[in-house]
Design a binder for these strands. Structure first.
Lengths: 373, 373
DNA sequence: TTGTACGCGTTATCAA
DNA sequence: TTGATAACGCGTACAA
């Protein structure tokens, strides 16, 4: 009853407009800027400014709006805002996987950094598949993201074209690749292979082998292997590699150990593509009568938690995973929030190329190195 | 010159409209449905249908549009589509953390499931903070998501209000809580505590203690502890708990072992809040002259990879992390794609309440159990 | 400091 | 099967 009375009190025009609005309205049921504005008897744009440029509002109005927003439980519609402004506060990230031990830390630091700045993170896994990556990139670009983070530099042609056309900062994180247009943040995979090989050479190992993973599409491990091969060639030694076919990394590591250390000319040191492989080999060694590092030294990659829990401790090369995520976010903020968005800021190679850390433990002859100088 | 000539050839009205369009147009530079439609000389709505309801297009037109889309590299603007349809293809997930060993698998399976169905995942970490969760929920709701996944059931008042008003499926994953409006998918934390306690009782341990974490806000561990206390009380035994203050979980586990096993009436079995704590204790035990499980048995939670790598192997209760993510996605699809969205489908408690698996290893007297029956 | 008018690119509705 | 038109909710441009 009261409602009807209210409506009768309205001027004729207003009522007609109301009617029309109700008739044509697509019932979303959602509260809008307009509702908040009408509640206060002000214009929508002021409410909009409350969220966007609060400093341009008088203190009084700001307070009244804040109160109304809280009271009504208004939640800004970012979809509408994104359409109106043609830029949105989402940032997309496509990464090989989330739950593996390798990328999780990068995702975490990146997610926290962008969230703290008021962005939302769109995340998808590619599993090293260019097709899955392409699908994710296409979908993410549909949201007019503020930026896009991809992993490394191997994309499909369609992906390359999409990121070339998108006028937003594109970051290729994890592997540092020279001569790419997108901003690179990461480390050199080949350097990891070189570092591991040189470490074993220094420790006095003679026949140094490299064990790959069975994961198809992970080109990073191939790059690391190439670094190892390069060092071997420089020293006039014969590179020796093995590719397991077991899908379980622990089992694959055991396979590699069998193949490389139980042959005619057994390796006395093995570089594993990652810590899980190395751990599998380390655990299988006693059962194969192989002492570590006495008969065979081992070095992994990744700096997984388990590497320090093993007995003997597993020497591992630790990538700057957390730093990569942080730096990626930093670079995005620099570009997005710069006055001249066409001039990317810190593309300087030296600033974005990071180093890995070799964490030495017993598995590469921490003790033995001292005994046989 | 040519351009000017062309314009002169245009009918007066059309030219005026063009001028106006150029004048008022905000240069987004982005290719639109309209561009594709004009390229083909058809209406935009047909191009829209190509993406939304291709079966309603004649085969000929469908093919022509497909070709034009590929050729022009058109990427649909999901922001505009979201505004027009008031529903979007994003799904939000707020989870305590990404990089920890606990939730990663749930995120991964959930992400893969929703991505496979054409949704995009918005992800944020709460670190068990109700404020961070609230911020993420507010931002995510701004995108009119198709659904929202939260972790467990402890939210701020504002969050509760927002999810009550949002007319979308809300899922509380991980902990199964009775009598909540949002769809619950997960397991009972208290059951985990009970399971661990009963297992140790069955194995013949007398003084069973519980070691908590130092992570503030993780209420799940308290629920597990309560299950343990309940079992102790039922058996007329005295519960014994300890809360470490070390921030490193490995160190905290060592602390707990010192406090619980080096006192007047030492515990002969400890339930740890998670596997990392247990691993820290397990590693520290030899240095403290404590044999495991001879002097003190240990059981963890999480089923982390390291639990099977330790010597002795660590008994652990493994949560159904992957299943939770999959099931959450399934339930969302059921609701979203059902004809009658107001009637959620599989809220049946029995379908969504999952069990944890106790993986027994040497640390709870795998051998000793047989020796002392 | 505050307000008015309109377009952002798509989909819902109605019409042919 | 295809098209014309208006609406989604907000931000930009400009005016007061």
């Amino acid at each position: 009853m009261k409602k009807a009375d209210d409506m009768l009190d309205l001027p004729k025009q207003t009522q007609a407009r109301e009617d029309e609005r109700v008739r044509h309205r697509r019932n979303t049921g959602r509260m809008t800027l307009r509702d908040v504005a009408e509640h206060l008897g002000i214009s929508q744009i002021s409410v909009s400014r409350y969220f966007q440029k609060p400093e341009r509002l008088s203190g009084d109005l700001r307070e009244r709006i804040g109160q109304a927003v809280d009271e009504l439980g208004y939640v800004p519609n970012l979809v509408a805002g994104g359409l109106a402004s043609a830029t949105s506060s989402v940032i997309g990230m496509v990464i090989p996987n989330i739950s593996g031990p390798i990328f999780a830390e990068t995702i975490q630091t990146f997610s926290d950094a962008v969230t703290a700045r008021g962005y939302q993170l769109l995340l998808a896994s590619s599993y090293f598949s260019e097709t899955l990556e392409e699908n994710a990139v296409r979908a993410f670009l549909g949201w007019s993201p503020a930026a896009l983070v991809l992993t490394s530099a191997h994309h499909s042609a369609a992906t390359e074209e999409m990121i070339a056309r998108a006028h937003i900062p594109i970051i290729e994180a994890w592997s540092f690749q020279a001569d790419r247009e997108p901003i690179q943040i990461g480390f050199s995979q080949a350097d990891v292979g070189r570092l591991a090989a040189r470490h074993l050479v220094e420790r006095g190992y003679r026949r140094i082998a490299y064990a790959l993973t069975s994961v198809a599409g992970d080109l990073h491990t191939l790059d690391r292997r190439d670094g190892y091969i390069e060092v071997m060639r420089e020293l006039g030694r014969e590179p020796l590699t093995f590719t397991p076919n077991a899908t379980s990394p622990f089992h694959a590591g055991k396979q590699a150990l069998e193949a490389l250390a139980k042959c005619e000319q057994p390796a006395d040191a093995i570089i594993f593509a990652n810590d899980n492989l190395a751990a599998g080999a380390l655990l299988a060694a006693p059962g194969m009568n192989i002492s570590v590092p006495g008969d065979c030294a081992m070095i992994g990659f990744g700096g997984f938690a388990l590497s320090e829990m093993m007995t003997p401790g597993l020497t591992s090369i630790r990538p700057p995973a957390g730093t990569i995520g942080l730096l990626a976010a930093e670079r995005i903020f620099e570009v997005v929030e710069s006055e001249t968005p066409r001039q990317p800021i810190a593309r300087d190679r030296r600033l974005n190329k990071l180093a890995c850390e070799l964490v030495e433990r017993e598995s590469t002859g921490w003790a033995r190195g001292k005994l046989t100088p």
